[in-house]
């Protein structure tokens, strides 16, 4: 056994690892491999919840993410809003979290998609704005959304004057709720208003958070979930299958470099462990 090779496998220069990773990501993006993408039950349930949502009721898109997690949360938000718009469901944007970027990013995404689906601000969608205090806002909105928000976020006009708010008095009048989040904000929805609402609560967390949400899926407290970027790609595939999208976009394309990067990780873990065992064996032999 070459002892020096075993040692080197444990101490590969991180810059080499980063170059290999970068090369894999670039190649994967330029030449995507058509990998099979199995639709997970939780993504299917999210899609079904939106599909079954009544078109005469508004939907809430709650955004709790900023630019730091947009790699996962932006595609999730896009596919969710696109699906709602394809069904001509009115959209109310709520933004929470520690960073007010969420409202800017959500308005930007919805504004771009609104042009494609001919959605008019104030009539078909509205931005209720950013609130730092999610617990207080949700508890208040359970009684009276207009009283809690008072004005919209873009034009600062009284909320009750906008046609999009017709028939929307409180959270009880909502057809479906979807939160795209990089934080544990789901506990506020479940803990404070979930049992009082009739609307299904769907969730789009980052991959880091997703494993902890399975207990809530199992208990039925969350109706469906998009598991990070993979969940967004599954949702995109469902949109293609249902004819909402003509072809898959960037999200599906991103699955190739992610899969390749995970394979690289397996290889590196394997090499590191092999190096450690080989070095130990060589040392034992003297």
């Amino acid at each position: 056994m070459d002892k020096s090779l075993a040692f080197r496998m444990q101490n590969i220069d991180r810059r080499i690892l980063y170059i290999v990773l970068l090369a894999i990501v670039v190649i994967g993006l330029i030449f995507p491999i058509p990998l099979p993408l199995a639709i997970s039950p939780q993504a299917q349930k999210f899609f079904d919840a939106v599909e079954k949502a009544p078109t005469n009721k508004a939907a809430i898109v709650s955004v709790v993410w900023s630019a730091s997690t947009q790699g996962e949360n932006r595609p999730q938000t896009e596919v969710f809003i696109r699906h709602l718009m394809s069904r001509r469901i009115r959209i109310l944007i709520m933004a929470f979290g520690g960073d007010a970027q969420s409202v800017t990013l959500a308005q930007e995404i919805t504004g771009d998609l609104a042009k494609e689906y001919n959605y008019e601000y104030g009539k078909d969608w509205i931005s209720l704005g950013y609130r730092l205090d999610q617990t207080g806002t949700l508890k208040g909105a359970l009684l009276d959304i207009v009283q809690v928000y008072k004005t919209d976020s873009k034009e600062r006009r009284p909320l009750g004057e906008w046609p999009v708010m017709a028939g929307v008095k409180s959270l009880k009048d909502i057809g479906v709720v979807g939160e795209i989040s990089a934080s544990g904000a789901y506990k506020n929805w479940i803990g404070l208003v979930g049992s009082a609402m009739s609307a299904p609560l769907c969730y789009g967390p980052t991959s880091v958070m997703a494993p902890e949400l399975y207990t809530y899926l199992d208990s039925g407290q969350i109706a469906g979930m998009m598991f990070g970027i993979k969940g967004a790609a599954e949702y995109e595939a469902l949109l293609v299958k249902s004819g909402v999208l003509k072809k898959a976009g960037f999200t599906t394309r991103a699955i190739t470099p992610i899969s390749l990067a995970l394979v690289l990780l397996f290889v590196l873990i394997g090499l590191g462990n092999w190096g450690m065992y080989a070095a130990r064996k060589a040392e034992a032999k003297g």
Partner: peptide, 21 residues
């Protein structure tokens, strides 16, 4: 959770690489 964390970090990298490309 570790596997998911790796996937999340890769997604962030891919987003930036796609932005550059």
């Amino acid at each position: 959770i570790f596997g998911s964390t790796v996937m999340a970090r890769m997604a962030l990298l891919i987003d930036r690489v796609w932005f550059l490309m």
